[in-house]
Computed example of a mutant assay.
Amino acid sequence: MEIKGNHLGLGYENRVVLQDFDITVRQGEIVTFVGPNGSGKSTVLKTLTRLLPCRKGIVTCNGVPLTEIASRDFARQVGILPQQHQVPPDFTVRDLVSFGRVPYQNWHGGNSAEDDRVVDWAMKATGVWKLREKTLSACSGGEAQRVWIATVLAQQPDILFLDEPTTFLDISYQLEVMQLVKKLNRENGLGIVMVLHDLGQALEVSDRIVVIKDGKKYAEGPPEDVITPRMMKEVYQVDCQVVRLPGRKRPVLVYGEIP
């Protein structure tokens, strides 16, 4: 599966955020958008998932314009987890994850045996099976985020879009979510498209990184080609070194000058 747009103009009613923007995301890879606040990262995700119309150009899924794909069919291919989400406080984990099966159900029907099987699988795959009878309000922040990911995973999408999935989480929960993202990609072949603020996390888990600055694509490519001291200085105005450590597959970021 492939979602693609060329020479796109992205933005809102009275404001263009990005111009002449090219992007392709595919099933099976982890793509992360990074850049300063307000640069347009979330705008890209909203446009690629039909939450925001293009101001210029066309976004396609497997060659078909998104506007020509039925909502139910699109929801079976693409899962979306926005920054903000709410649920009634008495909902259990199983109740919420079951909502991921709506694209496969008739309006008058309940869960089928197949729905129940997929819901169980999604909870087990995200490590929330033991929480299934717990209310979401009683879950920790990290647990709740994994439950939301399970809900979108129950849609059985080919590509999962996550808008700042680690924001407001303690570091231990951030690491849990990043490990889960890698697991879903490596074991299930799921495409992951994310917006992240933590560049260390982006460097660690991504197959490809897209840097956005001042309404344009600054760079795109493998993490180690994109996250460089020059990029950090020009985009974030910080001094940074990219350092390799023994036993680590990917380098780490060290801010400031190294003695």
Rank of each mutant, 00 (worst) to 15 (best):
Q86I: 09
V87H: 15
P88S: 07
D90Q: 11
F91Y: 03
T92S: 15
T92C: 14
T92A: 09
V93G: 03
V93P: 07
R94G: 04
D95T: 08
D95Y: 08
D95G: 12
L96Q: 12
L96Y: 04
S98C: 11
S98D: 06
F99H: 15
R101H: 11
V102Q: 15
P103D: 05
Y104A: 01
Y104K: 08
Q105A: 14
H108M: 08
H108A: 11
H108F: 09
G109I: 05
G109P: 06
N111M: 08
N111V: 03
S112I: 01
S112Y: 04
A113C: 07
A113H: 09
A113K: 11
E114P: 05
E114K: 05
D115Q: 02
D115I: 02
D116M: 06
R117Q: 12
V118L: 13
V118M: 12
V119F: 01
V119G: 04
D120A: 04
W121N: 15
A125S: 11
G127V: 14
G127L: 09
V128R: 00
V128D: 00
W129M: 13
K130L: 04
K130H: 08
K130N: 14
K134P: 04
T135W: 09
S137E: 10
A138H: 01
A138F: 06
A138S: 05
C139K: 05
G141M: 02
G142Y: 06
E143W: 03
E143C: 02
A144C: 10
A144I: 00
Q145L: 08
R146E: 13
R146W: 00
V147H: 12
W148K: 04
W148T: 03
I149S: 00
I149M: 01
T151W: 05
L153W: 12
L153S: 12
Q155E: 07
P157D: 08
P157F: 05
L160V: 10
F161G: 07
L162E: 02
D163F: 06
T167V: 10
F168I: 00
F168R: 06
F168N: 07
L169N: 10
D170I: 04
I171Q: 04
S172P: 13
S172H: 13
S172G: 10
S172T: 13
Y173H: 12
Q174M: 10
Q174Y: 03
L175D: 12
L175P: 11
E176H: 14
V177R: 01
M178S: 14
M178V: 15
Q179K: 11
Q179E: 06
V181T: 11
V181L: 10
K182M: 07
K182W: 03
K183W: 01
N185W: 00
E187M: 08
N188E: 06
G189M: 10
G189V: 12
G189A: 14
L190D: 12
G191T: 03
I192M: 01
M194N: 11
M194K: 04
V195T: 10
L196G: 00
L196D: 02
H197W: 03
L199R: 09
G200I: 11
G200S: 14
Q201C: 03
A202L: 07
A202T: 07
E204A: 14
V205Y: 15
V205C: 15
S206D: 11
S206Y: 04
D207K: 09
D207E: 07
D207L: 08
R208F: 08
I209G: 02
